[in-house]
Amino acid sequence: MKYGILVNEGPYTHQASDSALAFTKAALEKGHEIFRVFFYHDGVNNGTSLAIPPQDDRHIPNQWSELAKEHNIDLVLCVAAAQRRGLLDESEAKRNSKAASNMIEGFRISGLGQLIEAGIQGDRMVVFGD
């Protein structure tokens, strides 16, 4: 089955990111396809390269980044939600004259159309959040 996944909450504050990661890993292990993981609302904070969780805790942004590298899955941060919350890739930082970018490898920034497309192209859309 081909899955679209939506993550609506930020890491650590809410379990949604952990659940979405676990679901994504389980789906891949079972041989399913992940069409796209789309991050919206505070979910865009999953894509930060600046998180430093305590050493005895899980590193959620790194886990997404490694998963993307390993399985070549498409991780997309909503551009409007990301800009509001100060999540920028290099080109967004440059375009908005910001001093730095802070998006971790494996993610990309794009528009909400990518979420709708995942709904159209996927067999199932699974939403993580409240």
Binding site: Y40, A80, L112, I116
Partner: peptide
């Protein structure tokens, strides 16, 4: 919370997809 406003933003984009 911001959910209502950002949900409306999704809906306005979605309208362009003829679903």
């Amino acid at each position: 919370t911001i959910y209502a406003w950002e949900s409306l933003e999704v809906v306005l984009i979605a309208a362009a997809f003829d679903q």
